[in-house]
């Protein structure tokens, strides 16, 4: 036990915690994405999925709580790493230049991470802690469409949608570096596989970013075309 604690006090150990929690969050994101994409199947399918989730409670609360803890650990360990990193270079260079071809995603990791963190609260307030029935769920035909209606109404607002799309792009960028980092941190990378892993990572990031963004885009377009 003591050994494990020591392990997670080292630079590499901490990174492995970040990588492990990152992987858990990725699994969650995949699940969440699949669920969300059900929106394309119409209100019944989508609300059915929501109702199914509600039925899983209170067990689901435990999982959600654990997920929250994982998320906090992910952030806390990242914070510790950054804290050390800042201390490791007390005085910075006059000119900071780069020799590598490191991607844009890599350079903006802390930024995208912060945006995702802020987004999470907004998102929970937006869809989880807002009542799923009532004025905000009523569509143009005057009927209450439950969660489907809530989401539909929210994304009909271009501003609201834009913010979501930006957040999802950040998530995409974050993942496109994060997945690759996971492999590196767990030592799966070697010179032969580096290029493949990088490709998988970037593809995954783009895919997740785009897929999530499809939802507000779809609703925006649908709303504008008057359906």
């Amino acid at each position: 036990m003591l050994k494990t604690i020591h392990h997670f006090q080292t630079s590499i150990g901490r990174k492995q915690v970040v990588a492990t929690t990152g992987l858990m969050l990725i699994l969650f994101i995949i699940g969440h994405l699949i669920g969300n994409l059900l929106i394309f199947g119409g209100p019944e399918l989508y609300n059915g999925y929501a109702a199914f989730l509600v039925k899983l409670r209170p067990g689901l609360f435990v999982i959600e709580g654990a997920l929250g803890v994982v998320f906090l650990i992910h952030i806390f360990f990242t914070y510790m790493l950054i804290h050390d990193n800042v201390r490791a270079r007390p005085k910075n260079y006059k000119i900071v230049a780069t020799k590598s071809e490191r991607s844009f995603a890599t350079q903006i990791m802390p930024f995208t991470g912060t945006i995702i963190f802020a987004f999470l609260f907004y998102h929970l307030w937006d869809f989880t802690f807002t009542p799923h029935h009532g004025a905000q769920s009523i569509l143009r035909d005057g009927k209450d469409y439950g969660l489907y209606g809530l989401v539909y109404n929210a994304f009909s607002d271009p501003l609201h949608s834009t913010f979501y799309i930006i957040a999802m792009m950040c998530l995409g960028f974050h993942l496109s570096h994060g997945v690759e980092s996971f492999f590196q941190t767990y030592g799966v990378t070697n010179t032969k596989h580096t290029a493949t892993i990088r490709m998988i990572s970037q593809t995954f990031g783009v895919l997740v970013g785009w897929s999530f963004s499809m939802i507000p885009v779809y609703i925006l377009v649908k709303n504008l075309s008057g359906n």
Partner: peptide
């Protein structure tokens, strides 16, 4: 400091040592 997988080290290494060694 800690590695954040930015691979500046490999690019700056005069012997071009690969970051796969970090992995």
């Amino acid at each position: 400091g800690n590695c954040s997988n930015e691979y500046e080290c490999e690019a700056a290494c005069p012997k071009s040592i690969s970051v796969s060694n970090i992995a």
